[in-house]
Nucleic acid binder design. Structure first.
Lengths: 184, 184
DNA sequence: CCAACCATGTAAGTTGTTACATGATTAA
DNA sequence: TTAATCATGTAACAACTTACATGGTTGG
């Protein structure tokens, strides 16, 4: 139960919204949720097999040959509720950018500037993606009950990205010699 | 080179500040840097052995029996500079809290409230820790050259924690029924 | 008909954690 | 003297990724 509990949570969660094939679960995880949670094929299929064996999901033959559409069972919903109530197992921090800044004295200013530029570009790209997702969410009437939760999730990403932009600006001013600024 | 490259960066980075035993490296990583980067014993010792074989660090007998104090070599500094210049390999997102919020419709409001409370407590604790580290940094004259970099790293943590507090407040208002508020 | 996509699954390999084994030193 | 801390290292295990193997379906 401890094993793959986190993957099971994600898979059951997706199925709690509606039936899906393994492929579609992967797609769902790769889209909105993908900005906060990652799963790969190699985990999803074995997990589905296990969940089926435990009676937490049911497989029906899909529209295509060899495809199976999974549905969550009542037991599956109960399990999901349990899993959601468990305290999230913290992922050990591994922030490559901050590792580079922390040991920044051993690097050259040009390298630090690149790190900060990349960080800024990525944060802006994420904000743009979130804006696009929000626009899409507004038109999806079918999932109206879920929208507040999805919106809250996206909001976390937006605030984190904004904090990152603030940090980049502050850090540029603090660590980079003014001469390297492109202005004037 | 790809293998354990990230661990090697952290280990060489610590040694670029001063000589240390494997145990001390672990300590260093567990303290300030530990809020942004994690390494375990099982990685550090084999990594040191490899680095020594590659001539990037030198081992001298330490003060205690069976202890070895490692020093970075010129080649080690050069390698560190290279590693710091490489783009950080992104860690796949696995935010347990956001996973729980995203599927929040399948959970009860009480469980959501707990998740948010935990998030808030953790963020506040982190801010307190960062304040303590800042106070300590101010008194350390020996590492004055590194302080701007360490300070920038801590600042990233502070901004992230503050963003998290903002998010918790917003999300409570958006997702939790007003009746569950403890006020009046 | 061919490319792109839908769809499932496995096997090998890498990475990282945890527990264990061992023992010296220091402070209470 | 006993607990905590310093110190190193390994072995087993768990988690996760990647590449591979396979084949159906749809649209241009």
């Amino acid at each position: 139960m401890a094993r793959q509990a986190q993957t099971a949570t994600a898979v059951l969660g997706v199925l709690s919204i509606g039936p899906a094939t393994g492929y579609e679960i992967r797609q769902a995880v790769a889209n909105v949720l993908g900005h906060f949670w990652h799963e790969s094929f190699g985990q999803i299929y074995p997990c589905l097999t296990e969940l089926e064996a435990d009676g937490l999901v049911l497989a029906a033959p899909g529209e295509r040959a060899n495809s199976r559409r999974y549905e969550i069972t009542a037991a599956g919903r109960a399990r999901l509720k349990m899993l959601l109530a468990e305290p999230p197992s913290p992922q050990p921090p591994r922030n490559g950018t901050l590792l580079r800044i922390f040991f920044g004295r051993a690097a050259s200013p040009a390298e630090l500037a690149t790190v900060l530029d990349t960080q800024e570009t990525e944060a802006r790209a994420r904000l743009a993606t979130f804006a696009a997702i929000r626009a899409e969410l507004a038109t999806e009437a079918a999932y109206a009950e879920h929208v507040p939760y999805w919106s809250a999730t996206i909001r976390a990403g937006e605030l984190a990205a904004e904090a990152q932009l603030t940090w980049v600006a502050e850090t540029r001013a603090a660590l980079l010699p003014p001469a390297t600024l492109p202005t004037s």
